[in-house]
């Protein structure tokens, strides 16, 4: 019975084979529970502190809210207003959604074209895309800010174009890798039926690309939602995204940080990610790992 379950067998069955070691497993479970608690603890502390009054946070974050220090939803209602958080939240959402949509659409088209055309020009462009993946942001941050400002892209819509350019390397690389594995015969059949490349791409190729497109979308969404330096340099403090607003709230107000509002901001930055994560967990873990292993 033991050999039959090799590949498809779930890990659960394997321990049964070894002939119950319930005692050993109990220690393992206990250890895992302690570690899991340690992993959740920091998030829990931030969450609890977001309900405490602003003078009862700094220096004593581990105290539970008491009748005196409980602030209700005050931090969420008044605390975040001063830092323009609702606007920053909306802006982050808009930029992330817009950039991810642009990236998925345009880089899929580009990746497919590059693989199918296979001309020297396309090979050269592809090499540049892969090259860009190893260049750290600091190398281009100063000059990119200059170029982008010069051509008027330093606004919440223009930055979508910047993200398209900066995210293109990894996205094209991953999508092109997948296109290479798609049998050409399918597209050929469509062509014989009279489809032009646009019809072939959107009718035949795009649906097949979906799993990789989802991976690319997730990777870029996590990156752009959390990105700090690029929007800070390009949009400045006039059009704050959420990470920029958090950083400014902390650094811009020496000595007079509203810690209550600040905790509420952190919760607002984490919450969408956690919800997104719990819904699409399987895709997210797979996607993030796929991006890592390839990139």
């Amino acid at each position: 019975m033991d050999i039959a379950i090799t590949n498809g067998g779930s890990p659960k069955k394997e321990t049964k084979n070894k002939g119950g070691k319930p005692f050993k497993n109990a220690w393992a479970v206990l250890l895992l529970i302690i570690l899991a608690a340690l992993f959740i603890f920091p998030i829990l502390v931030v969450f609890l502190n977001s309900f405490k009054t602003k003078f009862s946070i700094m220096g004593r974050p581990f105290e539970l809210p008491t009748a005196e220090t409980f602030a209700g939803l005050d931090n969420y209602i008044t605390g975040i207003k001063s830092a323009d958080i609702p606007a920053a939240f909306g802006r982050s959402l808009f930029i992330t959604a817009g950039s991810v949509a642009a990236l998925v659409l345009f880089t899929s088209m580009t990746a497919w074209y590059i693989v199918r055309s296979n001309s020297p020009l396309c090979k050269g462009i592809y090499s540049l895309f892969t090259f860009s993946m190893i260049v750290p942001f600091q190398m281009v941050m100063y000059t990119m800010t200059y170029v982008v400002t010069k051509i008027g892209l330093n606004n919440p819509i223009g930055i979508i174009f910047v993200y398209l350019g900066f995210g293109a390397g990894l996205s094209v690389f991953m999508l092109a890798g997948f296109v290479k594995s798609v049998p050409y015969e399918l597209e050929e059949a469509a062509q014989i039926d009279g489809c032009n490349p646009v019809q072939t791409f959107f009718g035949i190729v795009m649906p097949i690309l979906r799993p990789t497109a989802v991976t690319v979308a997730i990777l870029n969404a996590m990156w752009i939602w959390n990105d700090y330096l690029l929007p800070y340099l390009i949009l400045g403090t006039g059009n704050k995204t959420l990470p920029v607003a958090i950083q400014i709230a902390m650094q811009g107000a020496y000595g007079s940080v509203n810690w209550g509002g600040f905790m509420a901001m952190l919760v607002l930055a984490i919450l969408p990610i956690i919800i997104f994560y719990l819904i699409g967990q399987k895709y997210i873990i797979e996607g993030v790992i796929a991006g890592a292993v390839k990139g």
Partner: peptide, 27 residues
């Protein structure tokens, strides 16, 4: 296919040039 280059590649390439190629060379 080559006459579709502007549609399929140019948007990404233009963004890539502005955000990466030109800044990299300038840097």
């Amino acid at each position: 296919l080559s006459k579709y280059f502007p549609l399929f590649v140019l948007p990404t390439l233009a963004a890539f040039a502005a955000a990466f190629i030109v800044p990299f060379a300038m840097g």
